[in-house]
């Protein structure tokens, strides 16, 4: 059974008599054990969407099913019990500032009525697991951002959730810390089998850990599927834009790829290298073979789910016959190619 199933979900907000449609007709399925990314620009509605998964936001219309149970049909009390099985971590960590690390982790367990001594014992185990065993007496204000998020993760795991929702959990962290937190999430997914939903605006985060991704743009789900698939063949404009913005290398943001000032006219091809072809000097061979230069407008290599994926945009010579031959040649070599139309940003 699917961990989360969302059917025809709509959410609108009314502010000062104006109705704003935040989400419209969202359909998606998250399977058990997935690390499912939901990506979009800020204001796209992804945070609202993830809050519909535990009904912190009530959808205006549509259904959310958690392991087949429709949240809308639950009473307030049943819903609270259900929520305790869906943990959540946040961009700003949202720890209790007046309680120490250990009591923060005990908090959800005490809420659900666990004895203090048992809660403490489990909290210590969890702290060891996230690598902060020596910090149990510290207060959140004394911790770094990465440490706070580790405490938040330990707290989230306290009640043995089946699903973990991460709302921009790495957005306030530097690249190294982000990588470490993502590694921890992957480890949790692997060892505890917890389904993880990751909300982010950074494509690098999706690329690092997710196996599936949904792209949200202005409240509409424009594309979803396997991460490698979307990286290789982005269908929507939003997906292409997000992939282009994704800087080379690590999970960092800010180092945007340098784009040529103007992509020259004529035919442009986007080619994607898979694992084998990345080592063969294909472009060089092609140029030698046809005796015609191609313009490399953009080139990048990324680590997608552990596999190196090369991406390149070539500007082809004006000659129509030559273009057909080049396309044919590249296809024969087993490359995925796609014509890029219009302006590539």
């Amino acid at each position: 059974m699917a961990a989360i199933e969302v059917r025809h979900l709509y959410k609108s907000f009314t502010q000062k008599g104006m109705t704003v449609e935040a989400l419209s007709d969202i359909n998606l399925t998250v399977e058990q054990g997935d690390i499912y990314g939901i990506i979009g620009m800020s204001g796209a509605g992804k945070s609202t969407l993830v809050r519909c998964f535990n009904y912190l936001e009530r959808p205006t219309d549509g259904q959310v099913l958690i392991e087949g149970r429709e949240l809308g049909s639950l009473t307030e009390k049943e819903l609270r019990v259900q929520r305790s099985e869906i943990a959540m971590i946040f961009q700003n960590f949202n720890l209790l500032m007046q309680k120490n690390v250990l009591d923060n982790i005990c908090f959800p367990m005490r809420l659900s009525g666990k004895k203090k001594s048992e809660a403490r014992q489990r909290a210590r185990e969890l702290l060891a697991m996230v690598g902060l065993a020596e910090k149990e007496r510290a207060y959140p204000a004394q911790l770094s951002g990465g440490q706070k998020q580790r405490v938040a993760i330990a707290r989230a795991l306290a009640c043995e959730p089946k699903i973990l929702l991460c709302d921009e959990a790495t957005s306030a962290l530097d690249p190294q810390t982000t990588a470490a937190i993502l590694e921890l999430l992957r480890e949790i997914n692997r060892s505890l089998g917890i389904t993880i939903i990751i909300i982010t605006h950074q494509m690098s985060v999706i690329r690092e850990v997710c196996n599936r991704v949904a792209i949200i743009e202005r409240g509409v789900l424009v594309e979803n599927g396997r991460v490698e698939e979307i990286f290789s063949h982005p269908k929507s404009r939003a997906a292409r834009e997000l992939i282009l913005r994704d800087g080379p290398g690590g999970a960092g943001e800010g180092d945007r790829p340098v784009l040529p000032e103007r992509m020259s006219g004529g035919k442009k091809l986007r080619i994607v290298f898979s694992e084998n072809s990345a080592f063969e000097p294909l472009i060089a061979n092609m140029i030698l073979k046809f005796g015609a230069p191609v313009n490399i407008l953009r080139a990048d290599t990324k680590n997608v789910g552990g596999v190196a994926k090369g991406e390149m945009i070539l500007g082809l010579p004006e000659d129509g016959h030559l273009q057909i031959d080049i396309e044919k040649y590249l296809k024969e070599k087993g490359l995925e190619i796609e014509e890029v139309t219009g302006d590539v940003e």
Binding site: N54, L56, R80, V81, Q82, R83, S84, I86, A87, M88, F90, N92, N94, L95, L96, M97, Q98, K99, F107, P108, R110, L111, S112, C159, L165
Partner: peptide
């Protein structure tokens, strides 16, 4: 901080628990 209250609610805290265990603390 509204975020801390939201975190407590995401753990299944009732309104009463939010008041006594989060807001007042």
């Amino acid at each position: 901080d509204a975020g801390v209250i939201e975190a407590a609610r995401s753990m299944g805290a009732s309104d009463f628990a939010v008041i006594t265990r989060v807001m007042l603390v």
